[in-house]
Structures are given as C-alpha cells and as structure tokens.
C-alpha cells in the first residue's frame, strides 16, 4: 500500500515536472503555420482581402476561416502555393483569370494631390505636389489602395499590356472532346 502510494506520487511529480519544463523550454510563440503562410502572401499589407494586413490574412487562412482565393494581388501563383502548403485542392474557379493588372494614372484627370503616393504600400507611385503622377508598373501590385483615395478618379486598374517577354501561347482548344460528343450524338 505504502509502496504503491510512494511510487505513484513520485511518478506523478516527476512526469508533471517534465511536462512543466517541456512547456517552458519548448514553448512555441504563436502558430508557426501562420508565419509560413504569411511568407507565401505578397506582404504588401494592402488589406484588399478584408483582413488587417497579410498577418491577419495568414491567421484566418490557418484557422480555415478564409478561402484560399482571398488575395487579389497574389493571383493564381499565391493560390497554388497556399494550396500546396495546406495540402488541399486549389479551387482556381474563383480567381479572376484576367491576368496581371497594374494601376494607371489618367493624366488629364490627375491634379497632383499626392494622396496616392502616400498610401502606396510598395512606393510604386512617382510624383510631387501639383505634378502629374505616374506608376512604376514593375512595382505595382494592383492592390487598389490608390484608386480608393484618388479624389478625381484618375487612377484605374488596367490589365497589364502583354509584352514580347510576357506573351505566351494560349491553351489549345479542346476540339477533340467536341468531336467525340458530336460522334456520339
């Protein structure tokens, strides 16, 4: 009886001690998955997804409360990367396949108020007070922050014009299938 009491007490105390120490020394700050997911997101904190910045979006993704297609500037690349990390099937049907877009300043409407370049998360707008602004297409993520603040609606998001470098062959049509159906009919 005594031996059993002692041995169980010793066992309980030592295991409790080990668990307590492990909890202290192997403590993980936050959810590591959130950090990994945040690294896959564009990191421009534009807020288009409706969450406060990319950290918020990553937390929502990790919790499973946000769809993989939440990031408009990220496009298909981000969706496939997130799907690969989370081990789920990527549903690309919700992603606009308009291709990359960039902001464009309509010079006849721009009054040089500088509001857009103050909000641009990637410093993609060039300008000075009372001078027409312009957008560096290489730095623009089409997050739309500038569109919202422009008082004269001078900024539009346009599909990026294809260049010789970005042009590619379209996917061949699926005529074989159509023929097969026609033959079956």
């Amino acid at each position: 009886m005594i031996a059993a009491l002692i041995s169980l007490t010793v066992l309980g105390t030592s295991l409790g001690l080990i668990l307590g120490l492990a909890a202290r020394f192997f403590k993980v700050e936050g959810n590591p998955l959130v950090e990994e997911l945040e690294a896959l997101l564009p990191g421009t904190q534009c807020g288009q997804c409706g969450y406060p910045g990319c950290t918020g979006a990553a937390q929502a993704l990790a919790a499973g409360s946000a769809p993989l297609t939440l990031c408009p500037p990220g496009g298909r690349v981000v969706v496939t990367a997130l799907a690969a990390r989370l081990g789920v099937e990527a549903d690309l049907s919700g992603v606009e396949d308009a291709g990359p877009r960039i902001a464009e300043v309509r010079e006849e409407l721009c009054i040089g108020c500088t509001r857009c370049y103050k909000v641009c998360p990637t410093d993609a707008v060039l300008g000075a007070a009372k001078h027409i602004h312009a957008v560096f297409s290489e730095a623009c993520t089409a997050c739309g922050s500038c569109v919202d603040v422009c008082p004269t609606e001078a900024i539009l998001l346009r599909p990026a014009a294809p260049t010789l470098q970005s042009w590619g062959w379209g996917k061949p049509g699926l005529q074989p299938l159509a023929i097969a159906q026609g033959m079956a009919a």
Binding site: G43, G74, T122
Partner: peptide, 13 residues
C-alpha cells in the same frame, strides 16, 4: 515572373 515580382514588391513594402 509573377513570383519574382512578388519578391520585389515584398522588399519594397
């Protein structure tokens, strides 16, 4: 290309 651009914009941000 899109991935490379994302890296650039992340750095800029």
């Amino acid at each position: 290309r899109s991935k490379a651009k994302q890296e650039t914009t992340r750095k800029l941000a």
